[in-house]
Structures are given as C-alpha cells and as structure tokens.
Design a protein around this nucleic acid. Sequence first.
DNA 1: AAGCCTACCAACCGCAATCGA
DNA 2: ATCGATTGCGGTTGGTAGGCT
Length: 373
Amino acid sequence: MGRAPCCDKDGLKKGPWLPEEDQKLIDYIQKNGPGNWRTLPKKAGLERCGKSCRLRWTNYLRPDIKRGRFSFEEEEAIIQLHSVLGNKWSAIAAKLPGRTDNEIKNYWNTHIRKRMLRMGIDPVTHTRRFDFLDLPSILSNHSSSLLQNSSDQLNLLNLLGLQSLVNPNLLGLASLLSNNQNQIQNQNFLLQNLHANQISNSSDQIMAQNQFINNNNNNNNNPQIQNIGETSNTMKPCLDQNNFATEAQTDQQWQQGMLSTTDSTAVGIQDSGNYQAIVDSFLETLGLKSADNNNNMANNNKNHDLRMPSLLSTPCSSQQQTPPLSTSNSAACLPNSSSTTITSSGEDEIDSYCENLMNFDGPLLDMLYDNVL
DNA sequence: AAGCCTACCAACCGCAATCGA
DNA sequence: ATCGATTGCGGTTGGTAGGCT
C-alpha cells in the first residue's frame, strides 16, 4: 500500500506564489497561527497543498526572516558550522537567526561549495583534495620562473609527463597529507579539550569543539551568531575585521603560531617534519629522490609552514556595504544586519584572498619542486 | 536584437521522524 | 505496539534574470 499523498494534487496550483496568495496565507496565519497545514489551504482560500503553504511560510513569509546577502560573519559561521554539522541545514539555520535552512543550503551550493572546489577543498570533509585541482596548470604556473634552461625544461617535462603516470600516487600523497593533517588536528583538538574542558559525555562533543574554537578566538566575539549548542561567542577565526591590508601582518602572526584555526587548519611548524617525511617517502617511491637527500631537504624546507589558514575565512575586509536585496514579494522581510555584506565584487576579492591563502603552489609544491627539479 | 550560457534561488519531491489515536 | 497522518528535512529541479557573444 502506497503512502497517501500529502494532499489531493488535482487542481492545486504549483509554481511561484502570487502576491495575493502570499497575502491570503499571511492573513490566515496572523489570525489563526500556523499549524494543521493539511487543512490550512482550504480555510485560507488557497488552491495550494498544505506542504506548499508550509514551505512558503517557513522559507519566505515568516516575519523573522532576514533577507539579503549573507554577511562575512554569516558566511564564516556557515562554513564553521558545516564543518561540524555537515549538511544539517536546519541545525545550521538554527544558529543563524533569520536565515532559513533552504537559504543557507542554496548559498552553500551556489557560492561556498563552488569556491571550495575551485580552491581544491573537498566541501564534504573540508580538507584539501589534490584530485580536485587542475594540477598541470598549477605546476606550469609554479614552474614558469624555473624554465630558464633546457635542463629545467626537461625536468619539468619529465614531471608533467610523469604526472599522468603518477597521478594515483599524487592522489595517494594528497590522501596521506590529508590524513596526517587530520590526525594532527584531532590530536590538537583532543589535547585542547583535555586541558580546557571537562567532557562529561559524548553529547558534549559539539560543545567541546566550540570550546576549542572559542579558546582560539577569544578576541573575536560576534554577537550576530549563536554558538553551537549555546549562546556564546562566535567561532570566528577571522583576521582583522577592518583592514584587508593586514594580510601580511596576519601571515606573520601565523608564522608565530599566534593564530589558530578551526577545521581544516592548524598544522604547526613543528609538523613540517611529518610532511617532509611523507614527501620524502613519496618521492622515494617514485624513484625521484634518494634517502641521502632527506637531511638536506629537511634543512631546505624547515622554514616552510604548511599550516592551512582558516578554510575559507573571508577577508573581513573593507567591503562595501550594500542594501539588502529587495524583492517584490518580500513584504515581511526584516532589514539586513549592519554587518558587512558580500557584494559581487566582494566575492572576487574573497576568491582572490582565499586563493592566496590556500595557494597550492605554496610550500607543499615548493617541497615537491625542491625534490624534483 | 537575438540566442546562448550561467548563476541564482524559490519551490518541489520523496524520505524520515514524530505524533496521536 | 501498530499504523496512518502530519511535519521536518535535505536533495533536486526548473524558471528567471543578467551577462556575453
């Protein structure tokens, strides 16, 4: 026996809602309150199914819905929350007042997810994935300055020619690196919690992670976003709120280990040796490196800091503030927050910023090149 | 100006969870 | 405990607007 449909679909209207339909729904709910969606359409004089009415109300007409572009703070919160909660859009929405799960889901899929993929980050695990990258272009860009002589060219050709051959190995390396990084993160997280918190039971895990996050971001309170599990500080590992130009300063802070990050991030200088060992092992496997070189390599690269900064931390820059998007049928919308919103041009800036932060032709590839070229 | 492409997002669909008789 | 009704949720679709050629 099949499941009964939520409503008799015959003769019921589908598709976009008209303003008068919205008004009927608003009027009815203002008088009677939401509930019993099955009978509501008939009582409200709507030729819609209850499900459609409920969705329209919860996603669009509810008076507490905030419309307009997401602020940097909101975007960062979404990223952080997603790293903890996954695709639990309703849970994420519960932490972002005025935002619906549908809106957050759409924003994730159309903006954040794409940006992560562009940057070679797995949007599911929030970790780097080399198999997402356009490796040849990265390699060729990176090596352009090295193509000064035929020997280098030959080596590069070897490398690029090798690439199709060794792609699985590169992916293996990526996996190793990723796992190694996750291990380190987990260790850091565990240690942090052992020191910072009494974790009484597993249900406190999220709270513990917040504790971890907040411990690292004591100076970045953000009242706009509720914490996971309780009302508290944000988990924002953000840079200088007002000055995009402080990136260099921030880099320095990174170098000094003063900034910690949350999800796919903190691998400290002390961990470079682990990476080096992996790279060495990888290169030896490929026959591109002998064990004799390892010591030199370690010295050459001891200054490489392989930490990844906050996954997609947006620039927190001096973005232009834009008024909330005004839609024709958003009569019930609330004014947008006064916090910084993300404009189209701002997105480019974010991309640029993030790509700088997350550049793959950075230390790791430096290391590979140091070994291969 | 027209056609095509892409990004966006409201709305739909189906499954899962919960409720209540 | 069971079962149908209802609600919640997440994945997906499709219409629309805007940019580009």
